[in-house]
Design a protein around this nucleic acid. Structure first.
Lengths: 292, 292
DNA sequence: GCTCGACATGAGCAGAGTTTATGCGAACCG
DNA sequence: CGGTTCGCATAAACTCTGCTCATGTCGAGC
């Protein structure tokens, strides 16, 4: 009997038209996918996919199989949903804890996707100024799930979501932004006054450490408490600032340059204990919406 | 994500109303089933089955989940069938090799069940007089699947189907058959002339070895080539005989007693290489129809 | 009260599935 | 036309799931 996972792999390869892309989407490596598809083909009695040099197509056999595979997956999903519905009405709240920059940048698309899938699950959001605060609150069991920078020495499941890249924001026409350049060296901004963050704000540490690595101390023209304010102030000419690229709204007016050397932060989701159904469902949504 | 197997386990427990019986039907041990159901319950967020002292019932959650689980299983099955159909394997041929006693006793119900499920697969049956002949023919690749006694030192997959119990057949009113007795000691028949089997017939060896273990040599009143003939001759008074219990037709006229000590034979199905889809489908049918 | 039936639990083990590393062939590019 | 890149297959090692075997627990029935 073929497993659900194998059917899921087949569907994903069919949808993406490529082993490699399917493997990415499924969060497994490409050989693992190759193996499973191969096993499925053995147990089905013949090839399901036609390996072309540039892409992958379904064989007639695969095409015949595909709709039933989709249906089986959908039914399994419905089985779980039905179970959740039958029992989940009691405890349908998910407590989510995070830091300012994440709740502004990464979370909104995820929350929208989640709301579409599970409109009856209420989400309660806790926001913290600093990753350490987040960590401490999670230790006390404030929330079911934390989304934020990698916590040091965390006893419990941690899932890596992806790396955030930080960008320098400058006002239009700033001399440090060479025409056409995509990056900027932090050292060239060593003598500027920066749009900084308030004491205890997580991004204040990020900025300070990045500047320290570049060999200088960032002086503050102004310190803001709100993450979203910094790039607006920077674009208005108060000085450069450094923020995760995903907090910038689409069509943002300022000049945006990747820092060189790169300033990155691993974004993770972590829980105190093994995640329950709701939490792990949210984790999947999170992983799906963050990377692609 | 819950696996297909877990859903199958759930459905079977719901159908049988018991962990133990479900485990038998699924050909796994009861702890394995307990574990999987427990895992499914964990990943579903709550109990699916209510464990009563005498039986097992579904919780509302389990009841909600059940129809979808069935549907998922059915779709997965259809996926495989669709693939087979597309590959043209549904109009295929399955070559089956066996020994006389098996083709008479065990196989007919299996073949009927198979015919109902896959009416388009033609079965070609090869019958052998002795297990060694069967083994040799299989080595040469005569058939896709062999059904017969356990082959010695077989290089390839062997699946145990169950043990055949041999019975002594006597004419009605034979003095060796005590009224109400269900068994008979072979020694008490040591001085009889037996309804024996032809030289080279597999059951001839079985009879000789059983008698040897009981401390005597079975003299032959007559030797028959056909398995079905022996019990008829025995019932007609030519002498006792020893045959697998499953070769006796329902409503057989003679006296049937289990041999003591028991004469048993492990019945197996074996293939040269890993079985293909068709073969393993037949194997499943076989395993299902032989044991219960 | 004792035994028996039925499910739970725990330890140990085999095999499935995954990852990392590497190979191979076809297409693309200079 | 060789070199490079992209995409899938293959090999080997490791991890972890899921199995069996042995044992525990609890209620029912004699």
């Amino acid at each position: 009997m073929s497993s659900l996972r194998q059917l899921e792999y087949l569907v994903t390869v069919a949808d993406t038209g490529s082993f490699t892309r399917a493997a990415e989407r499924l969060h497994v490596t490409q050989p693992a996918l190759s193996h499973q598809i191969r096993a499925l083909e053995r147990s089905s009695g013949g090839p399901l996919l036609e390996r072309l040099p540039r892409s992958v197509r379904l064989t007639p056999m695969g095409r015949a199989m595909l709709p039933h595979a989709r249906a089986a997956l959908a039914e399994a999903e419905r089985a779980k949903c039905a179970a959740l519905h039958a029992a989940g009405l009691l405890h349908a709240e998910l407590r989510l804890s995070t830091v300012y920059s994440v709740s502004l940048g990464v979370l909104p698309p995820t929350l929208r996707a989640w709301r579409d899938k599970h409109p009856n699950v209420h989400i309660r959001l806790f926001e913290h100024r600093h990753a350490d605060e987040l960590r401490a609150a999670m230790l006390e069991g404030q929330a079911d799930l934390a989304v934020g920078p990698q916590p040091d020495g965390w006893r419990g499941p941690v899932r890596e979501l992806g790396v955030e890249e930080f960008v320098v924001v400058l006002p239009p026409g700033d001399p440090a932004a060479k025409p056409g350049a995509r990056t900027v060296r932090l050292e060239t901004l060593a003598d500027r006054e920066w749009v900084h963050f308030a004491q205890g704000h997580g991004l204040a540490d990020v900025l300070d450490q990045a500047c320290a690595r570049a060999g200088f101390v960032a002086r503050a023209a102004v310190r803001t408490e709100q993450t979203a304010t910094a790039p607006v102030l920077a674009a208005a000419g108060l000085g450069p600032t450094l923020v995760p690229s995903n907090v910038l709204p689409p069509g943002f007016g300022g000049v945006v340059l990747r820092a060189r050397p790169a300033v990155r932060r691993m974004l993770t989701a972590y829980t105190r204990d093994e995640p329950d159904v709701l939490t792990s469902a949210f984790l999947d949504t999170l992983a799906d919406t963050v990377t692609p």
